[in-house]
Nucleic acid binder design. Structure first.
Lengths: 243, 243
DNA sequence: ATGGTCGAATGGTATAGACCATTGCGAATA
DNA sequence: TATTCGCAATGGTCTATACCATTCGACCAT
């Protein structure tokens, strides 16, 4: 078994966290207790906990105990990381459900954004995104049909759109203009995202272009305010003193 | 001597890195050697190196050695534009009103953010920002008193804090970690910002550091969701310096 | 009830020692 | 000369143990 013990323990705990078996604010057994039941030394157990702590998944309080942190999913604002990849890399289980997938005729504002003629056919796609089976983001994006013919042939519940664009159409998203603003959830959005109407949401509007600066996608993503935080990160977010 | 040994070692090494005494690509003595000369155990020395490694300052290669990493990538400069300048440049009339300006003792979370001792005195400042006489942003920021003695002597209703820091204290904000999230307005915030309680706001949390990576400011800005939009343009390529 | 004290439990730090896989390089070999 | 092999050094992991400061609740005195 080449995998270090502390990594195995960390992954095991991570699994229990993302599946909800270990709920936020729940208290873990003490280090001495856990290391005993797992038959490892306390230092090894601490190495495992450090992995999770560095991911921001734990709250540790000397004299008190170790608790599962309230999840705050972080997303780097400055990069074009596709949703699924960025989240999977952080160890979250992701999923998607298609709400709408149809062809429409571009209205004037969309036509402008995508640099096409008014009423030219576009794909209009709405997906609800999940993390650990919890709906956290409502995504809407619009692409010209002539750039992505038969887009509905691909499984957009399992695959990232950017990945499909690159693999199946040879189109790489290269540049994007994004904006972020805070909005209130409408009733429709609230129901899908399982929040109360009026709850704060983060609206990300995006216009993405290919390597030749031709616009290929216009999208709007609605993130639950209580689950997402956008970071513009320079250095690693390590804490020097507390951990 | 409350400061842990490994923190002291890490800070000592960090000092040598930022001053250039330890140059990029330079090889450090081996862990066993360094721990011997410093008269600490190897595990303690490794704890110190882990701190620096987490900051991305080290390259560690089993079987080979530990090296100083190449310096970081240059970041988009426009991010650190002070509020007043950014707005004034766009032609808006700006103003500020001090809500709170007092000395407090740092609580644990603030102390961690600012890398100071708990209960060390800090300035706690709240300002309400106006654009065209309309309140649009509620700003809170906290700085250590020892870095900005007599900060209350300056007119923070007319001057930007960053400008005061540079002009009066010779401290230049050089780097920052920011995060954005959507929140609901409390009653207090709603009254000041002249929105209804529960209205969507954008919360920007910021930790700013000087040129030597020492944290100097922790701040939280609350923007009205109906008045602000954050724009992030994503450059085609991110240059990575290959080591 | 109220307030204070004490102690057990907790996470944080530190030590000394051990074994492992990988690396780099010199020595042995073809 | 070119290639391979062996080995010492390196960082990575793991153990067992010890002491510290902080926390929190039980107990006690008021």
């Amino acid at each position: 078994m080449g995998i270090p013990i502390y990594i195995q323990i960390a992954e095991n705990l991570l699994e229990k966290i993302v599946t909800g078996e270990l709920a936020p604010d729940q208290r873990l057994p003490s280090e001495r207790e856990l290391s005993n039941t797992l038959n490892v030394s306390r230092m090894t157990l601490r190495a495992a906990l450090r992995v999770l702590d560095n991911k921001g998944l734990l709250i540790r309080r000397p004299g008190d105990g170790t608790y599962i942190a309230q999840p705050k999913i972080e997303r780097q604002a400055g990069k074009l990381v596709p949703f699924t990849e960025g989240m999977r890399l952080r160890g979250y289980q992701t999923g998607a459900k298609i709400i709408t997938l149809e062809q429409r005729h571009a209205e004037i504002s969309i036509a402008n954004q995508l640099d096409i003629a008014v009423s030219e056919p576009v794909y209009y796609i709405q997906r609800l995104r999940f993390i650990a089976r919890e709906p956290v983001m409502l995504e809407k994006f619009i692409v010209p049909v002539y750039r992505f013919p038969n887009l509905d042939a691909y499984d957009l519940e399992m695959r990232s759109f950017y990945e499909v664009a690159e693999t199946e159409y040879g189109i790489t998203i290269h540049q994007a203009q994004q904006s972020l603003e805070a909005v209130s959830a409408t009733e429709f959005e609230a129901e899908l995202l399982e929040v109360v109407p009026g709850a704060p949401l983060m609206l990300e509007s995006r216009q993405a272009s290919d390597s030749e600066m031709r616009p290929v996608e216009y999208g709007q993503d609605l993130y639950r305010g209580d689950r997402f935080r956008f970071i513009t990160e320079i250095a690693p977010k390590e804490k020097l003193l507390s951990g």
